[in-house]
Design a protein around this nucleic acid. Structure first.
Length: 438
DNA sequence: TCTGGGGTCCTAGGACCC
DNA sequence: TCTGGGGTCCTAGGACCC
């Protein structure tokens, strides 16, 4: 065994739970949250799963079912989910010295040597998070991340565990782990599961017993690491400090097809604006990127996918420069006569903005632009993203992403905060759904 | 009519170099 | 008869994750 102890805490049906926190009357109703553009279901409560709503189900296919069964349907509200996630992580830091934020609803805690009774400690974490944020969670504990992940999944699936499963406990581990289907393991997707099945391996117990060298031959180092981690050998350590990122992207489907170059340029400029914000937020600058656009892979119409690379003379995070480069690449990539369903900007090489190699000329101009960007970001932080946008990014945005069922930004916007009156909260008023003022 | 977005890691293969 | 070998870097594509 590794000598370390990790706990993986994750929010149950996280996006749905966030909605329920602010609308408690939803607690007994099935709830789902949709992806961008209200495209498909990406979060479902157990009640919604029981109705047969699958992960990734296109909304237009389940719309009738939702209506019939009284499912509460929401567009994604990232302002809300991101804020709830931050609150949960603040709490985790009270329980562990090192926390790795793995995703918006999952964090690994290093709880090595902290508690003698780990199950009780896990329960304490759950109760605190529940009480302080309203979000229900499950906790999985193990000597490696892979085992903690598996324990977390088991905590979810075995009600008798009451939300905490400890795979550092040999009795619990040997009773519950071996029969788990190998496809449920972290890192085993469809292709790997089929490969393993062809080799006679269908359960986690069988995979754990595999010779690591054999696993490497079959599944590269990734498979070898899985086998070792299942046996308590640490291969993936906690990463408390997020590593510098390698790439960045803003890609989005349109709410209706785009057929004119003007609109395409508007969309690309809007995405360039957003990626500029993201770059500055992370203190990064782009060295190399590309623009792409394609038609719908679902529609029965001619398929087209076009892309063009771009590179600034020196690394940049300036919105106007990014718009100039990206729209130029977009014009080069554009081909008339198609119905484009999606476009995006992908930056493949980033550097720290502070390290950018400066050219000899144009220092005054750069300085001016930098001040302008700082002011732009300040305004948008103060008044909400999109309050101040470059004209090129468009104001009408007929192609803009749909969020027709979005709840309020209850926890991050004064204007949308829920108002409670009375003694028992029974007449809690809800504000109007978020609406962007032009 | 309507099917998400944003990441990571790994490998193979080609180009290039000495 | 007989035409090296090993290293690095880059890119594309596959697989996986939430």
């Amino acid at each position: 065994m590794s000598g370390k102890v990790f706990a993986l805490v994750d929010g149950n049906s996280f996006y749905c739970s966030c909605e329920r926190v602010f609308q408690p009357e939803l607690s007994r109703r099935p709830v789902i949250v949709l992806s961008n553009n209200d495209g498909c279901a990406v979060a479902r409560t157990p009640e919604a799963k029981a109705l047969g709503i699958k992960m990734g189900a296109p909304f237009f296919q389940i719309r009738d079912l939702c209506k019939r069964e009284g499912v509460a349907v929401f567009s994604s509200n990232y302002a809300l989910y991101g804020d709830m996630s931050r609150r949960m992580n603040d709490i985790y830091h009270r329980f562990a010295p090192e926390v790795e934020v793995y995703s918006i609803d999952e964090s690994f805690l290093d709880i090595t040597g902290i508690a003698a009774d780990r199950t009780a400690y896990g329960q304490e974490i759950r109760q605190t998070v529940r009480q302080w944020t309203g979000i229900p969670t499950c906790v999985g504990i193990g000597p490696t991340k892979t085992l903690a992940k598996l324990a977390n999944r088991t905590a979810k699936n075995v009600p008798a565990l009451k939300g905490v499963c400890d795979f550092t406990n040999a009795d619990q581990r040997e009773a519950l782990l071996p029969p788990i289907p190998v496809g449920d393991l972290w890192g085993v997707g469809k292709a790997t599961a089929e490969k393993l099945k062809a080799n006679g391996i269908e359960t986690v117990g069988q995979l754990r017993a595999m010779n690591p060298r054999h696993a490497r031959q079959l599944l590269t180092v990734v498979g070898e690491r899985m086998v070792l981690e299942l046996n308590g050998v640490l291969c993936l350590d906690l990463e408390a400090a997020p590593p510098t990122r390698k790439g960045m992207a803003v890609t989005r489907g349109f709410s209706r097809p785009i057929t004119t170059l003007d609109e395409m340029c508007e969309a690309i400029a809007a995405y360039a604006t957003r990626i500029g914000e993201k770059l500055r937020q992370h203190g990064l600058a782009a060295v190399h990127g590309q623009v792409f656009m394609h038609s719908s892979p679902f529609a029965r119409e001619p398929w087209i996918h076009r892309s063009r690379a771009f590179a600034p003379i020196e690394a940049t995070n300036d919105t106007h420069e990014l718009i100039r480069l990206a729209t130029r690449a977009g014009r080069e990539a554009w081909k008339d006569g198609y119905r484009y369903a999606k476009a995006g900007i992908i930056l493949t090489e980033l550097v720290a903005a502070a390290d950018v190699q400066r050219g000899l000329w144009g220092a005054a101009e750069r300085d001016h632009q930098q001040k302008l960007m700082t002011a732009l970001d300040a305004v948008n932080r103060r008044y909400g993203r999109g309050s101040l946008v470059p004209a090129a990014a468009g104001l009408k945005r007929g192609w803009g992403t749909r969020f027709e069922m979005r709840s309020g930004r209850f926890s991050t916007s004064w204007g949308e905060m829920p108002i409670v009156s009375g003694h028992d909260g029974s007449d809690t008023q809800r504000p109007q759904p978020a609406r962007r003022t032009p």
